[in-house]
């Protein structure tokens, strides 16, 4: 079976698979960013326990293999009285992992600002809130465009663990299995999925680079 045959026979499923992979990627990335902001706020807060919890959270979720987290969500949590459907488990796991990396990116964005500018802002008479709003957040956001672009691509690739749980429609990696169990597609199913991943990553990378060039801060 060639690529053309695979598309002819499974084209519809592929389209919905691609769309569902994209949707999952976006949800996980935005969820990860939002949670990452929250964790970062905890990590830079002046309250020691919040900092410790934030740091611990990041170490926990940036070091746990997503598969290991997924099996806990899918198989262990029901024993603890929490039964979630597969897609929810998957999205929750990826969001947790992505948020820890997002927070690391934010932290290095904040660290790049330098103490001097904060002191200068203080000397001008800006309040803490003004310093955070006018100096810290804009600079941290602009320096994290490229790392966040990479994180978005990584999020896309991480959705591949969705192939380890039953999903309808399957995401792109699961499609290889789906097609191969229904026909003798051989390499074609793999090629179609690979093109979808690489194409998406290419577009994300291109847009991220363009955005970065526009907002990058020269130091």
């Amino acid at each position: 079976m060639g690529v053309g045959d695979v598309i002819a026979e499974f084209g519809g499923v592929y389209v919905s698979s691609l769309l569902s992979t994209w949707l999952m990627t976006i949800i996980c990335f935005l969820g990860g960013l939002a949670l990452g902001v929250l964790v970062t706020v905890m990590r830079v807060s002046p309250i020691k326990p919040l900092r410790v919890v934030g740091d611990f959270y990041v170490q926990l979720f940036r070091n746990i293999p997503t598969i290991s987290l997924l099996v806990i969500f899918v198989y262990a949590l029901p024993y603890l009285g929490l039964l979630l459907d597969y897609r929810t488990c998957l999205i929750a796991c990826i969001i947790l992992v992505v948020s820890s990396f997002a927070s690391e990116n934010f932290m290095s964005g904040i660290n790049a600002i330098g103490v001097g500018q904060i002191e200068a802002a203080r000397s001008v008479g800006l309040s803490f809130v003004q310093i955070v709003r006018l100096i810290v957040i804009p600079q941290a956001l602009r320096t994290t465009v490229l790392p966040m672009t990479n994180l978005l691509i990584a999020t896309l690739l991480t959705t591949a663990i969705g192939s380890q749980v039953p999903l309808t429609p399957p995401e792109l990696t699961g499609m290889v299995n789906y097609v191969n169990s229904r026909s003798v597609a051989g390499i074609s199913a793999f090629v179609v999925s690979a093109i979808c991943y690489a194409g998406t990553a290419l577009v994300i990378g291109y847009l991220g680079n363009k955005l970065d060039k526009r907002v990058r801060i020269v130091r």
Partner: peptide, 12 residues
């Protein structure tokens, strides 16, 4: 007013 050794202008 305060003027620093390393200028500390707002980079962005």
């Amino acid at each position: 007013g305060m003027v620093f050794q390393s200028f500390n202008l707002f980079a962005h």
